[in-house]
Structures are given as C-alpha cells and as structure tokens.
Amino acid sequence: MFIRSGFVVVIVGFTLTSLSTIIVALRYYCRYFRMGSVGVTDHLMLTALLLTWGNTTINFYQDTTSSKFRPSQFRFPVSIPAPQIRLGQFLITLQEKRPMIEAALRGTLVTWWMYRITYGIALCFVKLSILYFYRAIASHATFRRMVHITIGFVCLYTFASTIASIFQCENPSDAWSTTAFLSQFDGVKGRTKPPKCYDPTRLYLFTATINLFTDVVILLLPIPTLLGLRVPMSKRLALIGIFSVGLLAIVASCVRMWVMALWSQSPEKSAQFGADLLLWGQVETNSGIISASVPFLRLIFGRREKEPEEKRRVVVPPRPIPTDNKPLRIDSLKFFTEPDLGPNGSPVWEPFITVPASLSSGSRGSAMLEPTRPHLTV
C-alpha cells in the first residue's frame, strides 16, 4: 500500500501538536493550581503552540494541493508540441493539462510562502519562553546579562529572516506566481520575463544554521550556574538532566539542517525532500515545546508523594514512669503530729536534703555550692 509522504507529514504533525497541547495544558494546571502563578514564559509557550497549530494546518493544505499534480509534468516545454498521453479514453496533451494544475500549484506556492514565515516565528516564541524562564530564576548578574543578550539576538535575527521571507521577490505576489514558477521549466529563454526575486536557498540554510546555534547556546547557558550551586553533586546533576531535556530539539534541528542541504541542491531535489523538510520541522518545533514544558509537570505528583508520608507519621505517647503498679502513698499525718524529742528536748528530724560531694568540683557554680563539710545535712 502506497502512502504519500505528504500524508505522513500531516499525521505526524497532528499527533505531535496534539501531544504538545496536552503538555502545555498540564503546564498551565501546575503553574496556576500548584504554584499559584502564571508568568510571561507560559504565555509565550502558548503563543508558540498556536503558531505550531497554524503550521500543521498549512502542512495539511500543502499535502492537499501538491497531491493533484506530479513534478514530472513541469519538465515539458510549452513552445513545442508536447507528446500525447492517454488518460482513460481521452487523449489530452500536456499543453492542455498544464492549466488544469495551475490552481493546485498556486495553492502549493502560497502555503510554502506562509510556512516559511510562521515556522521561524514559532521557533522564536519557543526560545523566548525558555529564555524568560531563565531570566526569572537568574540571580547572578553575568547569567542575567547573557540571557538578555540572547533574547535580543533571537528577536533581531527572527525579525530579519521574517522580513526577508516576506519580500523574497520585489513584488511579494511573484513568490506564488505560477507563470514565474513554470517559466524555469519551459526551456526557452526570453519567452517569459522572470520576476525580480533572489534565490531563497541561501537564506534558508543561514536561518537553519542560526537556529541550531541558538539551540546549543540556550542548552549550555544555565549549566555553569547549575554547577556552581552549593548543593550535593547528585542534585546538581539532576538539575542539569532536567535542563538537558532540550537535547532532542537540537538533534531534530541537526537532521533538519541536513535535509535542508539536500533540498536546496536543485528543483528536483526540492520536490524529493520537501516532505522530509516539513516532517523534521514539525519534530523540531514540537520537541522544543514538550522538552521546555515537561520539567513543570513534576508538580502534578507533589501532593501524592507527601500524603503517604503524613499518613505514616505516628504520634508516640510518652512512656509512663514505671511504678511497679503500686500507688504512691504520702503519709500526710506526720506533718501534723508531734515529732520525736531528743535527750535535750529538741525534736529529732530525719535527713531529707543532701548535697553530694561531686558538686564541690568540676561543675558550673561549684564555688557557690561547695560545702564546708562532705555533706550538708539539715
């Protein structure tokens, strides 16, 4: 069973974007209900998710329009009689068939023009969300300064690449002109006046390189600060592991850059690797959203981990003083009866206060308690 590569892009795009939507929703739940605060970093990630849904919708229309023609139909010139092909019971020349595919071709060119713009902006918002999170936790002045510099750089190059993508041609509408696109396959020079456009492949390779560079910078930016924390090494390594989840986005960016190099070699290669380029673009954007949001989801299990500990707490009552099960007896009548008299008629008292001799040395206040006799008996 043959499955179009464009249809695979649509399936993967909708699956990954749906997963990203679930992750971002859980992130909002944790931030609002568990932490009690939703910040700029969360809103930036939500904007990136909406733009990713826009890219997924554009991929759907790219597959729908491109499935109505084959790139091999562009290779026959218009100026000479084209060979005839049999389609069912009708004989249709390629010259007559070309106007039939122009509507679908125009849709493909428009969606590609829109995709180049929204793709770069979506990646920009993903990176800004991560950088604003760094900015919120940054306490060191140098780290905070580096975060601000990276934010400014990401915004500037995204703005420049977006403007360059919009004005790929002197007249922006020439970017989706079917006449200008088909003129490069006619084989007769001078028949159609070419529009004033620049070759966009260099721009795409440059932006792919900058995206990979900024991904690596954002990954490595907090590591020196994490290594300098005064916590056990195991906790530092755990924090580094959490922040290194974005390594998947870097791998996807590397693969996409390699596909971009193959895609930009020729128009035939562009038709061959176009679906792969869109596929890895979806993987790169969604992996950035997921990897930046997953560390917040640990708060979901915070209460579940604490409840068993509280249930296991048992209040141990103080141990009773052993009394051999005999009640204490106080003969209070002796305080009121006449004491025994001695030979000289004075009462005789039994000793009841005794200061041990050990207090006479080696203890605090021994000078005050030091007796003149070994024992002081009253």
Rank of each mutant, 00 (worst) to 15 (best):
L49D: 02
L203A: 05
P222A: 05
M368A: 15
Q168K: 08
K127R: 15
P308N: 10
V110H: 05
E310W: 10
S287H: 02
G39R: 08
R319G: 06
E284D: 06
C169W: 07
W280S: 00
L221A: 01
P200Y: 10
E268Y: 09
T17F: 00
A25D: 12
P77V: 01
E96P: 05
I58F: 07
A122N: 03
P318V: 09
S129N: 06
A208L: 02
D324Y: 11
T162W: 11
G302N: 13
R116C: 15
K127M: 04
C30G: 03
W53A: 03
L247M: 15
L229I: 05
I163C: 12
V78M: 12
I149L: 07
T52H: 07
I321E: 10
F125I: 00
T225H: 09
T41Q: 06
P322R: 13
R230T: 11
S332Q: 07
A175S: 12
S264P: 04
T15A: 13
A138M: 02
D340K: 12
R364W: 13
E370C: 12
P81L: 05
Q73D: 12
A292R: 01
I163A: 15
S234M: 11
S183K: 05
L341V: 09
L182C: 05
H43M: 08
P347M: 02
T178M: 04
T93G: 15
T178F: 04
Y198E: 11
P317D: 05
I289Y: 03
P194S: 11
G88F: 05
G288S: 08
F352N: 10
N325E: 15
G228P: 02
K127A: 01
M260K: 01
G246F: 00
R144H: 14
A136I: 08
A271G: 13
A252D: 00
S67N: 15
Y29M: 09
Q89F: 12
K269A: 08
D186N: 14
F273M: 03
P347Y: 07
W263F: 15
L229S: 02
P200I: 07
A367T: 13
A261S: 11
V12H: 04
L182E: 10
V12L: 13
W112D: 05
L131G: 00
T47P: 02
A208F: 03
P224T: 08
V188W: 07
I240P: 04
S332D: 12
S253N: 08
V147S: 00
L369G: 06
Q282T: 12
N344P: 00
F153K: 01
F243Q: 00
Q168D: 03
L341Y: 10
Y115E: 10
G281L: 09
I289H: 04
W53C: 02
T178Q: 06
V315C: 09
Q95N: 14
Y134C: 00
Q184D: 04
A275E: 01
G281M: 05
F243K: 00
G274L: 03
V315R: 12
L203Y: 02
I151V: 14
F213M: 08
